[in-house]
Every structure is written in C-alpha cells, then in structure tokens.
Nucleic acid binder design. Structure first.
Lengths: 139, 139
DNA sequence: CTTGAACCTATAGTCGCTATAGCAATTACA
DNA sequence: TGTAATTGCTATAGCGACTATAGGTTCAAG
C-alpha cells in the first residue's frame, strides 16, 4: 500500500538524502510517519518525485519545476493563472528544445567528420570548441 | 602582446574570479606575473580558456572537458577518444529533446484547452514525464 | 526474539562557481 | 608627472543542489 523512503528511492532513482532534502525545501509534502517515526509514501508521492527527477534530468531549473508542480496541483483553480504559468514554461521549454537541437546538429557534424583513425592533431572535436565562429554570437 | 585577466575575461566571456578558480583547479596554467604580481596571459591561454568555455556552454561535464584537454595535449594519440566523448554527449542530448517535446505537447494542450474562464479539468503535467522508458535505463 | 538492514536527525562536505573585504598596482587624463 | 579611477591581488565566505558521515533507533526476516 504505502512504502518506505528506500523503496521510493529505488523506484524513482532519487537518492534517499535527496528525498529528505526535497521535503525540507517544500518540493514534496511531508509524508505520514509510522509509530516509530519513519516516513511512508504513497503512489501520489511517487508520481510527484518522478516528475521532479525527470525534470532535473532534462535540465529544467528548480523554479520551473516548482511552477509546474504548482500548476498540476491546482487543477480546479481558475484557469487564467495556470494558463500564464503554462505559457511561460512552454516558452522556456521551446527555447531549450531549440538550443538542444542546435547543439545536436553541431555534435553530429563533429562526429561525422571524425573517423577515429586519425591523430588528435587533426581532430575536429577539439577544433570545434576552439572556434568562436560556431558561437551564437554571444561573446 | 600579452594581456590582463580582465582582458582575458572580456575576450572569452569567462568571469575574472572563475578564471582564477580554473587556475587553482589546474584547468589552466599559472601565467607569468608582472613586477606588481598581476597575471599576464598569452594567446595560448586564450585558446585554452575559449575551449573550456565552449565545452561548458555545450553542457559538457567538467571531467569530459578535462579529458579533452588532456587529449589535445597529446596530439599524436588517435582521435577515437575525443570522438567517443562527443558521441556520448550526442546520445544524451537526443534523449533530452524527446522528453522535452513530450512536456511541450502537454503544456500546449493545457494552454489550448484553456480560455481563461473555466477550470483545468485533467491536468497531465505530472504524467508528461511519467514514462520511464525514455530514461537511460538507470532507474 | 534476535540481528542486520534500513531508518532517523543533525551536521559537514562537495562542486562549480560568485561575492565580499581590504589592500596594491596600473592606467588615463589633466 | 601627479592623482584619481579602474583594475588587479589574496583570502575567505556564501550559494544551490545535493551527498556523505556520525551516532543512534526502528523494522522485518529468520
């Protein structure tokens, strides 16, 4: 029915001390405790923590995750707020996708021109990172 | 001919304290000093720091950058290792793109079904990341 | 009922920076 | 050449997001 912090950790891939840290930070609810003061979690907690884990893996900043959690936590709230949050986050996500795609293109180009048989001296991987021309003109 | 830490900072986009931090960590060489004990850098230092900067921008983890710097210090070694590092990174990025797109789809759905006047019925934000199948199989 | 694994709190440490304080060197301009 | 403003120096502290450790308690399998 419910499960321990160790079970939750195994099922989400989030380490035990990190789960306790998230609780302290208010990212997840304080769960019920056993007689002996140990935490016991539900499927709801599992879902929430899985979301946090995946969001972090994807490189979402912590505040974005907080907002998205808030959004999903109030499905009956007036829609205007939720809509604004969703829209803002949507913009972030799309920007992130575009960035990652340009990076993907760059790395693809680099690895394709590298057969693995020549010497480092002529390696495009290293040259690519040294070349300002490949920047998006930010500096 | 040579230039100050501030110049180096401006030309690479790496902040001054970060440059000193990299030096302490052995990521860049200790440069020569003026009579008055100020650091003076060369084009070689600029190149190396630019490389580090771009690697970080591309989301490479610090150990990967160290590895690449080591590789480039041995220009006669085969290129395969550098290629491997880039390929690993590429896989990672492709996975991230797929997952972000699933969240994008969900957020789009939310904002579209929302006119601002009613409540959000079935919010699937949490479920957007619910699919463990897309993970690297680590958990 | 025992014993070992898993849990508890509290605190300190890690990484990759970033900020601050207090002082010295350099540079620009009058 | 004098003198401010700017930039540099070291050392130390702080931050975010964890991660590890110590010292003790509870749980559950045999």
């Amino acid at each position: 029915m419910d499960f321990s912090i160790g079970d939750l950790s195994r099922r989400t891939g989030v380490k035990v001390p990190t789960i306790r840290y998230y609780e302290k930070e208010g990212l997840i609810e304080e769960p019920i405790r056993t007689e002996g003061n140990q935490r016991r979690y539900t499927e709801r907690d599992l879902e929430r923590l899985t979301f946090i884990r995946h969001g972090r893996d994807l490189g979402l900043p912590m505040p974005a995750i907080r907002e998205l959690l808030d959004l999903s936590a109030h499905p009956d709230a007036p829609c205007a707020d939720a809509d604004r949050i969703a829209s803002e986050q949507l913009q972030n996500i799309r920007m992130r996708i575009v960035q990652l795609q340009s990076l993907e293109a760059e790395l693809t180009r680099i690895t394709q021109s590298c057969t693995g048989t020549h010497a480092i001296a002529d390696c495009n991987v290293l040259k690519a990172f040294g070349d300002h021309g490949l920047c998006k003109g930010e500096h």
